[in-house]
Design a protein around this nucleic acid. Structure first.
Length: 851
RNA sequence: GCGAGAGUGGCGGAAUUGGUAGACGCGCUGGUCUUAGGAACCAGUAUCCUAUGAUGUGGGGGUUCGAGUCCCCCCUCUCGCACCA
């Protein structure tokens, strides 16, 4: 085996040993410090892709590094196993979702194991296991008890032909992705989780997560969308109705010249006068027909219509017309806006279009706005005018004053508004966690008693894709006695959004077999929070926000004691590759192109943009093939070396070969020198070349340790080891200095172990060690080996490099200055000039400033 | 429009606190060994150039003995949000 590097044999051998000896199992009985490392678990689609390889390779580096550093590492893996692909497979291939899912899990586990990832497989579970989702049902019951789960009407995407609800991503251009018929909105009663109760806490904690990328935090803040403002009531003329608006700018209230309501506003149809009814109803219908996505996308034309009604500005008693406007959204604020065209751009455009009056109520300092000359709304700070008793007040203070004034008179009050909506968790799907509720004609929605959990998803169903969820037609499942009154009742046939499962799986890993509740508190508190979480940026908002919400829910249910689930978050970049396109055959797989020609027709292939690897663009590399060809270590190494983890990675076949060559170089460096270093020991003192190599060895230890720990600069860590290997090749070794060589080689093997564990384990073994690499610990940098006798200093004249000198480390400033000034090339540049100043940066450079 | 991030050789990317710009790898060039090399090893490789020289980190200013790094203005790209009242 030691003659040449054979990744297949080496990798198989060690994967078997790791598995048999269960070396990566984590236990709480340890006096080592805990470290919980987690990568986002995969959906078991059946095949791993390069994105998985990269994600899990990154995680594995950290896991193995932390273990070598002496931490008690928890590194689990499992399956996000509910979801629609299983139902689609069932429809297309007549295979039961459960069978499909569990078979995929088997196959994907094997594929992951081929990568050599150091998981504690004893903690593995799939979210579709009843032992998992039963606790999710229990958490729902507890939330229901506390009013955190409730039911309300909500609009879904409905395909009439398929008799089913579609997720947003299943709607393509407003049509069903399967039958291509028009999707319609449909009002359904749905379950919601009251995430808005936690909006403030979720927001506040975004300032207390320094280990998260700023852009993820900013996306979450944006999503929560907290704004301070004021609710103001406007009475309607000749009516007892009142229109409530939300505004962040009560300071502009005197400038309100009309009112805009969302077309869906409940008052829209009552406020319309008979004279305007026909046109208004046409308008409402027209807006309804507009695509939802279009309506909230920027460049929609602003249109509106007058209802015929007026309302009264509570501050000045002015009568202003009430309009309906397509840009006013029913689900933000109150669905009604007081329009201040002089100080809001949208209202400005609307007023211009319908020739509505404008009034300036805020003047900028040192300027005077004239309505007729305004080309856009003025939204900057200023001083109030045309505002009665508030004239002269700066607008920031006026905001408070007017809000308080309205509050006193009972016509308004200060409020906080959020963009965040409650989380709709009902899905009209089969392959998900059943929602444990029973509907009784007399008792209403009755929770399933705890002792009856789990509500098991029945397996005797057939999926056709038509006629709605098979659960809704499954009589044996549906028909049940009411737990309260015992009369015939019906089960809820909806299942949970699969984001519910992924909102607490990280906690369940701490006690996967616990059968007395969702969490064994002691275990959860021991391991949580996750010290490092790693996954794709695509989960920046939904998954990560839901997981944070659920953590707080579980805390408030007394299941654990942490506030936040993930201390540090790393969002890795995508794996990209150049696309290739044949004029006749369209996108081509890499193997369909030889020498720039299409293998199907021989035509020249056009190179497209580098894009995220995707099946549709065919710019994919199959990890299984890659591992067959080069081995898992090469696949891992390239994924880690080509770019820093958080950046996108551009796949490059030649780069992969370069990594393979490097591993061969490492292999030979060890095996070629085995005899020479067999009995060698690390010498007490070294000199000359040996000292230089020894210094390089310890510099590398220092550099790699710093690069991995916290910084995750794996590419530069690997580069540093490559430098050390180059130094080993350059080192002319002899028997006397074999100890230094042994130390250098062992260091290479240890430092590379987190990245390419199989080859390192084998080489470590060849180097004569009985214990595994991890057990031998992380190399320690000997500071004394870093010290050189002489160092090179750069000499600059006026900031430009003009020479270099070698000086003793101990040399004092005067000596260094004298030597620098005496350097021949430096002399040329300072000759005949006056030396103004000499700056000495210890250990780095000397800058001579001349006139 | 708002928010975040980025712009460095032929390419991927280094440069952690303001201190030798281009580490490491790919590609390319030359050499050694070889029947041969698409193997391995060695050397070279920012640009211009006769250089021990000049220029050079998207563009323009500035601070500094010294700027890829700090400040101001502008350009381009990526991502996220977006008629949010």
């Amino acid at each position: 085996m030691e003659n040449y590097y054979n990744p297949k044999d080496v990798e198989f051998k060690w994967q078997k040993i790791w598995q048999e000896e269960q070396v990566f199992c984590a236990s709480m009985d340890s006096d080592k410090e805990k470290y919980y490392l987690l990568e986002m678990f995969p959906y078991p689609s059946g095949r791993i892709h390069m994105g998985h390889v990269r994600n899990y390779a990154i995680g594995d580096v950290v896991a193995r590094f932390k273990r070598m550093k002496g931490f008690n590492v928890l590194h689990p893996m499992g399956w996000d196993a509910f979801g629609m692909p299983a139902e689609n497979a069932a429809i297309e291939h007549k295979i039961h979702p459960a069978k499909w899912t569990y078979e995929n899990i088997e196959s994907m586990r094997q594929q992951l194991q081929r990568i050599g990832l150091s998981y504690d497989w004893s903690r593995e579970f799939a979210t579709c296991d009843a032992d998992y989702y039963r606790w999710e049902q229990l958490i729902f019951l507890k939330m229901f008890e506390k009013g955190l789960a409730y039911k309300k009407g909500s609009t879904v995407n409905w395909c009439h032909d398929c008799q089913t609800v579609l997720a947003n991503e299943q709607v393509e251009d407003g049509c069903c992705w399967r039958c291509h018929n028009l999707v319609q909105p449909k009002e359904l009663e749905q379950w919601f989780y009251k995430i808005t109760n936690y909006a403030d806490e979720l927001l506040e904690w975004t300032d207390k997560l320094p280990g998260w990328p700023e852009r993820v935090l900013s996306m979450q803040r944006n999503w929560i969308g907290k704004s301070y403002g004021c609710e103001i009531e406007f009475s309607v003329v000749d009516s007892s109705e009142k229109v409530k608006v939300f505004t962040t700018r009560p300071d502009t209230l005197f400038g309100a010249t009309f009112m805009s309501l969302a077309p869906e506003h409940p008052l829209a149809k009552t406020l319309v006068t008979d004279e305007h009814r026909v046109k208004v109803e046409q308008f409402i219908a027209a807006v309804e027909r507009q695509d939802k996505a279009d309506r909230t996308s920027g460049d929609l034309e602003k249109i509106g219509i007058f209802t015929g009604s007026y309302c009264i500005n509570p501050l000045n008693g002015e009568k202003i017309p009430v309009f309906l406007a397509n840009f006013v959204l029913m689900d933000y604020g109150t669905g009604a806006v007081m329009a201040v065209p002089a100080h809001d751009q949208r209202d400005f455009e609307f007023a211009q279009k319908y020739q509505l009056p404008m009034r300036v109520v805020i003047q900028p300092q040192g300027d005077e706005l004239v309505v007729e000359q305004m080309k856009e709304a003025f939204t900057e700070p200023g001083v109030l005018v045309n505002s009665d008793q508030f004239n002269g007040v700066d607008n920031e203070s006026a905001r408070e004053q007017i809000a308080e004034f309205l509050d006193d008179r009972g016509e308004g009050r200060k409020t906080v508004n959020y963009r965040l909506r409650d989380w709709g968790v009902s899905r009209q799907r089969y392959w998900g966690t059943p929602i444990p509720i029973i509907y009784c004609d007399d008792c209403g929605a009755v929770p399933v008693p705890e002792s009856d959990l789990p509500v098991v998803l029945p397996t005797d169903v057939e999926l056709t894709g038509e006629g709605g969820s098979p659960l809704a037609r499954h009589k044996a499942f549906l028909q049940v006695a009411c737990p309260k009154c015992g009369k015939a009742a019906q089960r809820e046939s909806d299942t949970f959004d699969t984001f519910v499962e992924s909102s607490w799986y990280f906690a369940r890993y701490t006690c996967p077999g616990y059968d007395k509740g969702p969490l064994e508190k002691q275990a959860a508190n021991h391991w949580l929070p996750v010290d490092q979480y790693i996954g794709g940026i695509e989960h920046a908002v939904m998954h990560l926000l839901y997981a944070r919400f659920f953590t707080k829910i579980m805390r408030d249910l007394g299941l654990l004691d942490v506030d936040e689930p993930f201390t540090n978050l790393l969002t890795q970049g995508m794996v990209c590759k150049e696309t290739q396109c044949c004029p006749e055959h369209g996108w081509l797989y890499p193997e369909q192109v030889i020498d720039g020609k299409c293998t199907l027709c021989g035509q020249d292939v056009e190179l497209g943009r580098t894009e995220k690897m995707s099946k549709s663009k065919k710019n994919v590399v199959d990890p299984n093939q890659l591992i067959d060809q080069y081995g898992a270590d090469t696949a891992r190494l390239f994924s880690l070396f080509a770019a820093p983890p958080e950046k996108d990675l551009e796949w490059n076949e030649q780069g992969v070969e370069g990594c393979y060559r490097f591993l061969n170089r490492v292999w030979r460096a060890v095996t070629d020198n085995l005899q020479l270093i067999e009995t060698a020991v690390i010498p007490e003192s070294t000199s000359g070349e040996a000292a230089v190599l020894r210094r390089k060895t310890h510099q590398t230890i220092k550099k790699v340790s710093e690069d991995i720990d916290g910084r995750f600069h794996f590419n530069t860590a690997i580069a540093a080891v490559m430098e050390l290997v180059n130094s080993i090749y350059a080192f002319k070794s002899c028997k006397e200095e074999a100890g230094v060589l042994r130390e250098a080689l062992e260091t290479v093997v240890c430092l590379l172990n987190p990245f390419v564990p199989h080859i390192c384990e084998e080489l470590w073994h060849l180097l004569g060690h009985q214990r595994g690499v991890e057990a031998s610990g992380w190399p320690i940098c000997d500071e004394s080996a870093l010290v050189a006798e002489e160092i090179t200093l750069v000499i600059q004249v006026n900031g430009k490099v003009r020479g270099k000198i070698e000086v003793a480390v101990a040399a004092d400033k005067e000596l260094i200055e004298a030597e620098a000034l005496a350097e021949p090339n430096v002399q040329r540049f300072i000759e005949g000039k006056q030396v103004r100043k000499v700056i000495v940066v210890p250990g780095r450079l000397i800058n001579i400033v001349v006139a």
